[in-house]
Design a protein around this nucleic acid. Structure first.
Lengths: 247, 247
DNA sequence: AGGTCCAACTTGTCCTATAAGCTGATGACA
DNA sequence: TGTCATCAGCTTATAGGACAAGTTGGACCT
């Protein structure tokens, strides 16, 4: 299986269409098709040395992320960046770090708006079963403070559990879409291990509020927890800015 | 071009894969594959009388909506309904009315959480240009009170304009995903034309607050506007319940 | 100059073939 | 009899070639 001039053959992590889509997206971000005309199926097929089937699926992926518009007979056109699907973990993965940094802040803003309310909603309708699972996750997190990666895995599960308890499929989906936050913020939180202990205390407080089925207290506890997180992010942003100024 | 036993040939509104995906989703919702094993590419190809390419793209669509899991060598499996992408207008279109009704309420809950804050954020950073567009849309809505469909079109644009002004791509995307609300709620609002005049007044108040660049007032105005909407939805829900009880 | 129409290009769909990955059942071995 | 390696048969992934159908821009005619 031969490839074209673009080297895709690093490691076969994903299917060919996904790899090609990643390359193309990066080129679009770089500004290669500023006239709005993106490569056609045949162009892609030739340039990357893949079959038309793969080129086709590549365009389907880009279209599903609202990166391009595809229609029979018409040329493929790049859509305005403002309309891209920034909720998709796939897209995030392909964006340059500085944009992801900005998105991380915007996503944090969203969490601050939603999660306290989700906690309050959950407090009103949470089941004993869910409470048990939360208790369990709490214990596991306490044991994992030395391993930030594993910790954040459980951390995310803890938050999603609460989200699910709020019993709203739309909000649940939104928070689920934000799961890439975990991967992206990992780098940040790893640098500040002391924050993990603080997080554990926060989580315990949220759990207590839910156990007491007290919406107001759950909201407040979640809000406090998130404000710690936001502070960390803002600090990181400052560092990035300083680094940029040094350049 | 001949079709299989399932009749897809109503009107060619969309591509074949989309039509087949719609049919399959409806069957999944109906509970046809409760064992979790969904039809394979060949199954679909045979049953609907389409080529394997189309069957393949069908599965890709279902996978992108998190309705099924597809992997090489493994059978296609249906994912738990809780994990489906309820933010996708495509999926919503294929769901039975009663589920859409529930989702409408959950979506309303989301809007109540987000939109007032979006309005407040917008008030802090809105440009004169955006204000002009809002003014224009306000005028157009006033003229369109007799035509609910056209009215709601502009209504949606008005809300999205504010959302964009808040300058947060994530939140913007979330609200954009909720655009199916327009179509779905159209039926409801059409029944209560008096509500349109009320909405116009609400919109004007929001506009005034933005013009004054007063976040708190913008938040309050938006909250009031949405509470009217929520009331309408709740009323509709009551009617549906009564109708169900009669059955 | 203005309008009509067609040729070239583009995506949509079909067919057939091969590669690659998974699963369950068969059968060898302890 | 129980355990484990192996493989046949299923599945998706990719390739190549063909034709249908829709769009666009330019050639051509008036």
């Amino acid at each position: 299986m031969q490839r074209g001039q673009e080297s895709l053959d690093a490691v076969k992590v994903r299917t060919l269409p996904v790899q090609v889509a990643a390359h193309l997206t990066r080129r679009i971000v770089r500004g290669d098709f500023e006239d709005g005309r993106a490569p056609s199926e045949l162009d892609i097929s030739r340039e990357f040395g893949v079959s038309r089937v793969v080129a086709r699926e590549t365009l389907k992926i880009l279209a599903s992320l609202d990166i391009v518009d595809v229609a029979q007979g018409r040329r493929v056109v790049v859509r305005p960046r403002a309309e891209w699907d920034y909720l998709s973990p796939l897209l995030i993965e392909w964006l340059p770090e500085e944009i992801v940094g900005e998105l991380l802040q915007e996503l944090d803003q969203m969490r601050v708006l939603l999660e306290p309310e989700l906690a309050a909603m959950a407090a009103a309708s949470i089941t004993d079963e869910t409470l048990n699972r939360l208790r369990d996750e709490l214990d596991r997190m306490a044991a994992l403070e030395g391993d930030p990666d594993a910790y954040l895995e459980v951390d995310h599960e803890f938050h999603m559990e609460i989200c699910r308890a709020a019993d709203n499929r739309i909000l649940d989906r939104i928070m689920y879409s934000a799961r890439w936050l975990g991967t992206a913020s990992r780098r940040i939180t790893n640098e500040a291990p002391a924050a993990l202990r603080k997080a554990t205390a926060d989580h315990a407080e949220i759990y207590e509020a839910l156990l007491a089925r007290d919406p107001a207290r759950a909201r407040a506890a979640m809000r406090k927890h998130l404000s710690n997180n936001s502070a960390l992010l803002a600090e990181k942003k400052q560092q990035t800015k300083r680094a940029a100024r040094r350049r």
